[in-house]
């Protein structure tokens, strides 16, 4: 099945491909993978003092749909608040890219990457009292 034009466009001209300093306090990094297809995706967000995402970068090793979904997600994230970003749904990405059913999981991967990046940023920027809670939450998440 040929990919939709939008997928091809993002695949051939990926937006925001690259990396930011993982150690920086204002950068949140999410690294996720899909064992079924072996795709690995890294998505990073830079958040300013008012909680707005000023920059987003991605690096995806995977199929065209996974690259397109993460590329589109970074475009979409810029200018959003963290709360708005947390509401990004894989279905929106899948719909925009007209992904066929077998490629829906690629958009799920992009949503997971966004959520992981937000969590990472929150963990780094949490007040000391909240840090323990955030760590607990994260541990709970990694078990599921």
């Amino acid at each position: 099945m040929p990919y939709n034009e939008k997928v091809l466009d993002h695949f051939n001209n990926p937006r925001n491909m690259g990396s930011m300093d993982k150690a920086a306090r204002d950068v949140g990094t999410g690294i996720v993978g899909a064992p079924e297809c072996g795709d690995v995706m890294k998505l990073q967000i830079k958040v300013d003092d008012s909680g707005v995402i000023t920059e987003a970068k991605f690096k995806t090793f995977g199929c065209g749909a996974a690259i397109a979904a993460s590329s589109l997600a970074t475009e979409w994230l810029k200018g959003k608040t963290l709360d708005q970003a947390g509401e990004l749904k894989n279905t929106e990405l899948a719909h925009e890219l007209a992904l066929p059913p077998v490629k829906i999981h690629c958009s799920v991967l992009a949503e997971d990457a966004v959520k992981a990046a937000i969590e990472d940023w929150k963990r780094k920027n949490a007040a000391p009292a909240e840090t323990a809670l955030a760590t607990e939450e994260m541990q709970g998440k990694t078990k599921t």
């Binding site: 993978g33 899909a34 064992p35 079924e36 690995v40 690096k59 090793f61 990694t142 078990k143 599921t144």
Partner: peptide, 24 residues
């Protein structure tokens, strides 16, 4: 099944990403 439990050993995806970058 892998569809139900996608977890990998801690730090593994980081290693994988680094290897993928080197591969590229």
């Amino acid at each position: 099944a892998s569809a139900q439990d996608k977890s990998v050993p801690g730090g593994f995806l980081n290693t994988m990403l680094m290897l993928q970058e080197e591969l590229e």
